[in-house]
Design a protein around this nucleic acid. Structure first.
Length: 324
DNA sequence: TTGTGTTTTATTGCCTCC
DNA sequence: GGAGGCAATAAAACACAA
């Protein structure tokens, strides 16, 4: 309750007084003018602000007494009595005074002792008040500066976040494309196997068998290669981004990626196969390194509905392949 | 008019520098 | 050890809605 001590200063704080802020022009013949600003040439007609004798009269902060030009010993008891019995509440600085201080602050926010005294004289304030004003002004500037810095950082973060989600979407799109092409390749091999087993008797009469490479169009091959290259390009970024991906952020689960319903028609029907046969299938159909990707997983959280759009119609392309 | 939130003025205590 | 800066804080002054 420092303020109350200052204002009403009872008990041991009775040595704290405020001088009245005079709402009269400086031209008025006020004793306070000569008391506060000896030889002041102030053109400001604002209020005189209060000051304290506390530090002067043996306060524990004697260093601040230097701001007080009022020396009780040099003034009659009448004046002192008048001040003591007219404690005044603090008043705000005038618009002119504030504008002057603002301009000074803009020029130089550091307040040298001589400049402080000069400013105080010019606007009719105590040097201590000027110092306090600069101190508070610095604090306000710092607060605003921090707010601006925070906003800039937030904008930067949002931008990076948007970039990250774009990359994530691209990555999932490419993964899906690879999966689709891999599926097509496996199905081609299966078809070939079936043809081999069913036409063994006609094998000698049949024309030379087409290789897998022959079955796959050049376009398909180039697609797979391209996707593989792209995947490698993204891998470096993904290693970093994945650890901080929305999966982790949101603590969500990892739903296994599923192709659309239409793609199920391409899946090998293994319902009537034994485990051994299934293993054989897996061995035989082991994909080549170029498209040997791990189980593709897609995080649905934070991804827009478009994130699972592959950029091509799975059913259409697969069907055209199947009708080959 | 009054209650409430914000701004401004000022103090206090701690810290660093010389 | 004194001088000054700074963060935290108090409290008056002010703005404004109900």
């Amino acid at each position: 309750m420092a303020g109350q001590r200052w204002l009403y200063g009872g008990g041991s704080n009775m040595n704290s007084v405020f001088l009245q802020n005079q709402r009269v022009p400086c031209s008025s013949s006020l004793p306070l003018d000569s008391l506060l600003i000896p030889g002041s040439t102030s053109s400001f007609s604002g209020p005189r602000s209060m000051f304290s004798f506390k530090d002067v009269n043996g306060g524990n902060r004697s260093r601040r007494s230097c701001f007080c030009p009022f020396d009780p010993d040099d003034n009659g008891d009448e004046d002192l009595d008048e001040f003591l019995h007219h404690p005044e509440k603090k008043r705000r600085l005038t618009v002119d005074q504030v504008q002057f201080l603002e301009k000074s602050f803009e020029v130089e926010n550091k307040l040298e002792p001589e400049r402080k005294i000069q400013l105080a004289k010019e606007i009719g304030l105590q040097p201590r008040q000027v110092a306090v004003w600069f101190q508070n002004r610095k604090a306000r500037w710092k607060t605003k500066h921090l707010e601006k810095e925070y906003e800039a950082l937030q904008a930067n973060f949002n931008s990076l976040k948007a970039d990250y989600y774009c990359l994530l979407k691209d990555k999932e799109k490419l993964k899906a494309e690879v999966l689709h092409l891999t599926d097509r390749l496996l199905l081609k091999e299966k078809v070939q196997e079936n043809l081999e087993s069913s036409d063994t008797t006609k094998l000698s009469e049949a024309p030379p068998k087409e290789s897998i490479a022959d079955l796959i169009s050049e376009d398909d091959v180039s697609k797979v290669s391209l996707v593989a290259c792209k995947q490698e390009d993204y891998s470096a970024k993904s290693d970093v981004l994945d650890s901080d991906s929305p999966h982790y952020i949101d603590g969500g689960h990892y739903p296994v990626f599923e192709l659309g319903d239409s793609s199920h028609i391409f899946a090998p029907d293994q319902s009537d196969q034994s485990q051994e046969e299934e293993d054989n299938w897996n061995k035989r159909l082991l994909p080549p390194p170029a498209y040997a990707f791990p189980m593709i997983e897609v995080a649905y959280s934070d991804l827009s509905a478009n994130s699972c759009y592959f950029g091509f119609e799975v059913e259409h392309q697969a069907s055209s392949f199947w009708s080959y």
